[in-house]
Write a protein that binds this DNA or RNA. Sequence first.
DNA 1: AACTTAGATGAAGAAAGCTTCAGTTTAGGA
DNA 2: TCCTAAACTGAAGCTTTCTTCATCTAAGTT
Lengths: 208, 208
Amino acid sequence: MAEPAQRTLKPRKRPVQARSTASVAAILEATLQVLLEVGKERLTTTRVAARAGVSVGTLYQYFPNKSALLQAVLRDHLDGVARAVEAASQAHRGETPQAMAKALVTAFLKAKLSRVEASKALYSVSDDVDGGKVVAEMGVRSHAAIVAMLKTANKPLATRVETVASVLQGIMAGVSRRMLESGYPEGQVSSLSRELIVVACAYVRASC
Amino acid sequence: MAEPAQRTLKPRKRPVQARSTASVAAILEATLQVLLEVGKERLTTTRVAARAGVSVGTLYQYFPNKSALLQAVLRDHLDGVARAVEAASQAHRGETPQAMAKALVTAFLKAKLSRVEASKALYSVSDDVDGGKVVAEMGVRSHAAIVAMLKTANKPLATRVETVASVLQGIMAGVSRRMLESGYPEGQVSSLSRELIVVACAYVRASC
DNA sequence: AACTTAGATGAAGAAAGCTTCAGTTTAGGA
DNA sequence: TCCTAAACTGAAGCTTTCTTCATCTAAGTT
């Protein structure tokens, strides 16, 4: 009857000495590698520990359960993207909507593409019950930043800024995902990057 | 040792009598319901069977394994969307790129929104190893249809039609997903629908 | 050097859910 | 009506993977 054993926990123990910090880093890195190599379905805590060069017990000393481990990795990655979006939103206040859109897309892509492999590997995690929450959180963060930026535009938008922000987020997420998952044939990526800027700019222009 | 055990199988048995056809339909419908109610993580074959009013054994008579069951449901749904896209692409040959974009988006949304609940429930399935293939297949189908349509545009595009098609697909997928997953506060949907048309039209206009 | 706390280990317990199959019921033709 | 094949049933086997914990080693302190 007791409803669940909380699924979202903080690290069980905080690293104090140097070696434990190294273990945590190794575990996170190993998780990403295993995710890429065998996929989420075949990722087991034992396998991750082995890859990290530690024992399962050690893994469980820092992550209360498998779900928390996956969440931590996902959060790490999305946090980087959210930071990039927030920084860009801060840096381009007061400009034209078009300039904002371009800056936003550029920052987003740079963050995403700086760790292409991680991005791809994490798509499978982001749709889990657990991952969903993390994605949503980060989505809200980015949304707030974009809205704040748009409000300072030197040229007013005809559409609600919240709507514009949502659409921009949808565009970026959708096109970039397609870009990454299409086994990107080399030049495909740079090509779609350019297109993404075209889309975003054309959209905000149409919304003025 | 034996790696294989094929994951993508045809129905184990083809329905012959009326009652078995009914069972299959009930199972598919039940899968969708269970998916919505408890999510993919807690979806078990036994639970699906119970909901469908049959026994697990019956379920396994038509679906070789859990994965195939999920795939079948996903395929059913995406097939509807792909059909809509193909029909629209066929019906709007020779028009302007803008008209095409608008028609495309409209058809896509109509198909997606006609079964909002199913759409939402299936996002969690589409990222599994198994689901991925189905999504990719349908993506290719839609892509081919859109490309064929764009080639007949009465006003040439400055960008490769394949690229334009990919971007349009990315836009539609990204924005609609955001629409559905944001707990859509009623008017949100119609609002974003309008925006999606704006985005698509603005983009193709910019690509002329 | 002795002591204390942090960190690491991995065999084994326990839960969970998929899948099977031997046996039973139902449908429809001869 | 009788018979054969299609359908259905569901308890139980089997596998898999998560998670724990008693025990051991390393680090830092006095």
